[in-house]
Amino acid sequence: MQIDIDHLAMLSRLALTPEEKVKFSAQLGDIIGYIEKLKEVNVDGVEPTAHATPIFNVLQADDPRPGLSVEDALRNAPVQRDHMVVVPRVVE
């Protein structure tokens, strides 16, 4: 099983060390080898289950209720300024 660890790390936003890449590639190879066993199952005509308990139309009224104060909203922000969260400048 060949996996593109760099591509997966990129999609996952994880900076992996060269050692991690080697180790994870091998471990993921084993795991993926194991999960391949699902191919043995005949799933023709079987509906997928996305939810263990099927419920439909869970909708709520459009009736606002109070949210968080600005203080609570930003309470855990690593960097903030002017009541906003700050990140390094995003280059468009």
Partner: peptide
């Protein structure tokens, strides 16, 4: 009046980060 997936108010032109709740954030 409220947001798509939670009931905090939706709106335009309010002071920054005053229309949030745990779901929005």
């Amino acid at each position: 009046r409220s947001k798509m997936f939670t009931r905090v108010a939706a709106g335009y032109g309010q002071p920054e980060n005053t229309l949030t709740d745990p779901t929005v954030l």
